[in-house]
Nucleic acid binder design. Sequence first.
DNA 1: CTGTTAGCGCCTTCAT
DNA 2: ATGAAGGCGCTAACAG
Lengths: 339, 339
Amino acid sequence: MGIHEVAKRAKVSTATVSRTLNKPETVDPETAKRVWKAVKELQYLPNTTARSLVSGSTRILGLIVSDITNPFFPEVVMGLEDVAIREGYEILISSTNYDLARMAVCVRRMLERKVDGVAIMTSELEKHLIDELDRRNVPMVFMDVGPVTANISNVRIDYGQGINEAVQHLLALGHRRIGFLSGPLDLKSARIRRTAFLRGLARFGVIEDERLVQAGNHKIDGGLQAMTHLLALAEPPTAVLASNDLTAFGAMRAVRLASLRVPEDVSIIGFDDIQLAEFTEPPLTTVRLPRRVLAERAFEALATHINAKKAGTPTRGAEYVVGTELVVRGSTAVMRERR
Amino acid sequence: MGIHEVAKRAKVSTATVSRTLNKPETVDPETAKRVWKAVKELQYLPNTTARSLVSGSTRILGLIVSDITNPFFPEVVMGLEDVAIREGYEILISSTNYDLARMAVCVRRMLERKVDGVAIMTSELEKHLIDELDRRNVPMVFMDVGPVTANISNVRIDYGQGINEAVQHLLALGHRRIGFLSGPLDLKSARIRRTAFLRGLARFGVIEDERLVQAGNHKIDGGLQAMTHLLALAEPPTAVLASNDLTAFGAMRAVRLASLRVPEDVSIIGFDDIQLAEFTEPPLTTVRLPRRVLAERAFEALATHINAKKAGTPTRGAEYVVGTELVVRGSTAVMRERR
DNA sequence: CTGTTAGCGCCTTCAT
DNA sequence: ATGAAGGCGCTAACAG
């Protein structure tokens, strides 16, 4: 089960076996044929561990997320897995559970396993830990959570694009009082979304009313609560954007609990376009964040860094952008006269 | 950054460094202290790859699932990750996408990465591929999808328990015409659930009416369709069990589309208890399948095999059982007189 | 084109 | 209790 057995059986040296496997052009076709035959017969599979030891490259990519249980992440994971295996990489996933101590564990795991690069998509990233990775020269890419730095790339999400479409959509339907249900504002990603939303409204000259912005927690119950607040206003909004789809789900529920209807009484737009968005009642109009593309860009960024590092010409961090777009479904409708 | 530097700085041999790290009791406390100091100062982290090469153990566990995007899986992944890292293992996830060719890729990846064991939770497992893993002596555990064999353990899910509770619950509410929405019957796991359901009904003497059993696809749209069929019956059921929660979601939607209400007109019970089940309108009564426990048992099984293998006393496959239990929420109610 | 040799970083006898 | 030396499986010079 080693390269040695193959060599013996093919009556060549181990070096030749290694060569036929890795640099086929440098070996005589006839010899190669014998080697391949032996490989097949022995069902030989190269030992990745040994390979890594000598090459200095594990061909493992780390992915740090907050919580794999969040419906947002699995699709990113799958996207990354797809592109990674195509290029001969494996993905090592680790979850921080929104916990800083656990984040430290994640980083340590990455370091011990000597991953070739790390993609980071968590809310709670401590500079301290990032620096540790940086100091050890591990290529990194942030997925919408960090700044571009000397060595670190970032895949930025262009929230503005989708949000503009969403606002225009509501405007076209006659809505003027538009609310926003943000995520938890201690999370940077949530703040970014909130800013993008406010900017989007401003761009179209919609009067900004602070009371129309409520904070949720990016989960269903938070959306429900936040929306309930909005509904209790003297002049409640006729349409609402949510910072993510789960929040929108909660909002829809709040509307229903208030004996109102979506979209007849209140239009609701979500964000992310998770799989379930298509299947709520009514189906959720939402801004799609193409997570597969996000994953692909992240891989691209990492691959660039890794290759540059291998070639001895370290690249500076770069910024990649992923757009967003409105997906119109059933939770938005023409504004009705006030009840 | 190698054990060598540490040795030099602590003025000991590399062997001693290795010992203080792995068998602290065999080294003089004073020497150990010096070594630890050097380790700290150099921020030394052992190279897992090199370690693996000599120990023959990668401390990586493979997990093969059909589709990480399915809301059922993430919690299993997280559960496995939690227990695994506690024991110093990493998880290598790979998705088959319900595709046999891709399944082969997964197996190959596991083999090349020399994982210490593999947990399998897919519908489409080809004997051929399992045999390959078996032949190479890779410890395996099926998670509710396979038989116990000489070398392979299985974590069986006791569907009966939860289903009995569900049926009793409905019976107690006065329901007698109880429908079942199965998963796609070409999937073994779906067939198992179906069988368990039919057996559960039989146990309580509920007349079995074939027309009350409809096949979905374990997704929302399938549940919607299947339920629509049931609703179109001359004598539609007053209560329905679904093979999984997504199917139940679809069923709820079908009820609503038929201008009926859950639970007033039709009671619905799901299966799995995915996170979202708590947040539908009304919240879904469902049978909980404790996925964390499932993951823990799977790890336990693998660890047992691995340790036995290391000790040179291979264990036979064993069966572990995970129970299920009814979680009563808002989608079930007392049967109403026929409308 | 192919074989020999020397590590990659670590662990583990075997002496001391 | 510690050090020296060999080897895990493979690749990369360097000869031939």
